[in-house]
Design a protein around this nucleic acid. Structure first.
Length: 466
RNA sequence: UCCCCAAUAGUUCAGUUGGUAGAACGGCGGACUGUUAAUCCGUAUGUCGCUGGUUCGAGUCCAGCUUGGGGAGCCA
């Protein structure tokens, strides 16, 4: 007797005639008074449940089997046989049904109904992985995550674990969460009356990181090709379908590389992970295609086979100015593109993700490399239809004098940045990298529109439940 | 943070000019069937988000608040 997953049984990987046990949860029960019941059992191993056929001759048929409802946990033992019914190739002819855990009140079990709004499921985040859609999201998310690690590993990148607690308050990527062990009710004060962070755990002000990039640069300037993949925190009061206070980010950093190399890497990485999802999760993707977004599979298939469009910011402005469309925010060279502009470029003008490059220096961060024109920096954004910015990256300023000039222009406190300047003082090299918002990637791949539904327990302003 | 919309049964929703609460699904009971989110019959659902106001009377009108959704800004 063996223990098998639902996925292996319905895929025919368990030989017919073998006695096996599956452990999982009941999705539905259908009774036939002709003398049998059918249980659809899922265990998370794949999208489709396995059917267990249970004869009323089983000793606990009346006492246990007939009281099973959606959500009950069971262990079913029986012979794997070819199914007599339509809808599945293989099923289990049960010889034993063991009830592990009943649902104590089926009438109020939140997951019992057939259809739920995605908003309701958000309120029961501890139970929603039991649904088809959130289960599928979890598997696709895992596949994307594994594929990202595999991609960088195969390309010779080192995975660097950058710190989540940081003292750099000038990363410029947004508001930060304070990390402190001080007693808020009784804060220590300096003679001048300010909070005395010398008394705090780290002896200085500390925060949760908004990006691992600066630390990743240090390792790239020693190990060549590195990446970070971990959680990131932004205390911005953003209430949208594409922002989280806690999200995961993939940040590769490449030494001896320029902007074009970073764009090449972004394109290759996206194609690699799209291909992995298409190959490894056809069951879940078929569900998303049927119920969430008709285009989700064809979109990925097209992208795997086509070159991404690359466009300079300056050319994008010309396109927007001449497209004849009225925008709420007027377009001219030097403005930061807003959602409507990015949407037009990605969704209407190109109809696919587009890589925008070489932005005006005044709308970008201090560490981005100044171009020869003195007006633009070697920055890039990957804009995805329906999502917007999915990747933001740049070639880093490797020239110390230029870096200092930019930090001065942007009023950045250099005192925390000496270590970062050292990277330019001791054997500096051109290098480049980008940040990929992992949840935005999951959202793009699955077609699930709200970012709060592609992370297990979303954290957002006024929302940190479970 | 700003703009718009919503809140009624476990869930998804309907509820007319203000007159005392309804359907479907799910649950429960039964019928029927190698069933496929089965089908058919029966049955119970409830602090109408909260507080106040208008009114003889408020799920319905008004104000404030709370929560949720969409859009914008910020960004990944």
């Amino acid at each position: 007797m063996s223990l098998a997953t639902v996925a292996d049984i319905i895929a025919g990987k368990v030989p017919q005639g073998e006695i096996t046990t599956v452990k999982g949860w009941v999705r539905t029960r259908r009774d036939s008074k002709a003398g049998i019941s059918f249980l659809a059992i899922y265990d998370g191993s794949g999208f489709d449940p396995v059917q267990a056929v249970i004869a009323n001759t089983l000793e606990n048929y009346n006492s246990d089997v007939l009281s099973l409802t959606a959500g009950c946990s069971v262990a079913v033992t029986g012979e794997v046989v070819a199914s007599q019914g339509k809808g599945q190739s293989f099923e289990i002819q049960a010889t034993k049904v063991e009830v592990i855990g009943l649902v104590e009140d089926p009438d109020t079990y939140p997951m019992a109904a057939k259809r739920h709004s995605i908003e309701f499921l958000r309120e029961v985040a501890h139970l929603r992985p039991r649904t088809n859609i959130i289960g599928a999201v979890a598997r696709v998310r895992n596949t994307l995550s594994q594929a990202i690690h595999r991609f960088y590993h195969e390309q010779g990148y080192i995975w660097v674990s950058t710190p989540l607690i940081t003292a750099s308050d000038c990363e410029g990527a947004g508001e930060m969460f304070r990390v402190s062990t001080l007693d808020n009710e009784n804060l220590p004060r300096t003679d001048a009356g300010n909070v005395d962070y010398d008394k705090d755990f780290f002896g200085k002000e500390t925060f949760l990181t908004v990006s691992g990039q600066l630390n990743a640069e240090a390792y790239a300037c020693a190990l060549g090709k590195v990446y970070t993949f971990g959680p990131t925190f932004r205390a911005e009061n953003s209430n949208t379908t594409r922002h989280l206070a806690e999200f995961w980010m993939v940040e590769p950093e490449i030494a001896f590389a320029d902007l074009s190399d970073a764009a090449d890497l972004a394109e290759a990485m996206l194609k690699y992970v799209f291909k992995a999802v298409l190959e490894e999760r056809p069951d879940d993707m078929a569900f998303f295609q049927q119920r969430v977004d008709k285009e989700c599979i064809s979109r990925l298939e097209q992208m795997v086979d086509s070159d991404f469009v690359r466009m300079d910011y300056t050319d994008a402005i010309t396109i927007l100015e001449n497209c004849g469309k009225k925008f709420e925010f007027p377009v001219s060279w030097g403005v930061d593109l807003s959602s409507e502009h990015e949407r037009y470029l990605a969704e209407e003008h190109v109809g696919a993700p587009v890589i925008l490059q070489n932005y005006p220096k005044d709308i970008k961060a201090f560490y981005m490399r100044m171009n020869e024109d003195g007006k633009t920096v070697a920055a890039m954004d990957v804009l995805a239809p329906g999502i917007g910015e999915i990747i933001g990256g740049a070639q880093r300023e490797e020239r110390l004098d230029m870096l200092d000039k930019r930090m001065e222009e942007m009023n950045i406190d250099v005192s925390h940045m000496e270590w970062y300047r050292d990277l330019r003082r001791y054997g500096t090299v051109p290098h480049a990298g980008f940040g990929l918002g992992f949840e935005r990637l999951v959202s793009y791949v699955t077609g699930v529109q709200n970012i709060r539904d592609v992370i297990p327990f979303p954290r957002a302003p006024r929302s940190a439940n479970f």
